[in-house]
Design a protein around this nucleic acid. Sequence first.
DNA 1: CGTTGGATCTTCT
DNA 2: GAAGATCCAACGC
Length: 215
Amino acid sequence: MEYRKLDKSFYAREDTVKIAKELIGKYLLTDIDGEGVTGGKIVETEAYLGAIDKASHGYGNRKTERNKNLYKAGGYAYVYFIYGMYYLFNVVTGKENNADAVLIRAIEPEIGLDIMLKRKEKAGRGKGGANGGINRITSGPGLLTIALGINLRHNGIPVCEGKEPEKLNIWLEDRNVNIAGKDVIETPRVGVGYAAEHALLPYRFKIKGNKWVSR
DNA sequence: CGTTGGATCTTCT
DNA sequence: GAAGATCCAACGC
């Protein structure tokens, strides 16, 4: 069976929470600077609902230089830098001028392990010891971007058209992995306590018992 | 074990 | 000038 790249119609829908849930079990892949294909299965996501969501960078339709890519139509990457150290990768959803997006929080590394390990060592993350490097190589939103080679260069590029700069490819695929509904856990988001009541909504999804979810 | 602080940059107040 | 959609290592119990 052939792997199917997710296209615009997948991201352009209006129910971002549903998209976040459906992304569990899909594959996130990159091919950067000719280093080869890297990626794996998505095991954790979070939905951010733009204008009505205090935790979103697009709350109240605030528009700035930094978050302008949030307002693109579904199917674009929104990457931004945080804590002086990490890039976080989101995929924009919904229609143009709607600031909805899904944050990819963790993947299960499967493709291009050696390349991802090399990137992690290069970034000086973790002990890199006997197996210290591999165990949490993509288990968290700040880590998976390191492993996949994602940074601000990718902010605003499309993830569903193959025609972008050849050394700067990010896309998502359906590899026919079906995660049973009972194995997907919904929880409140983390790290957004300032968002008050919005922090409590169950917009975070992860695969139950999966070793690669963030902590 | 659990908790804490440091790293270090962008954005908005 | 402060705080953030984070991670890790060093500490204290």
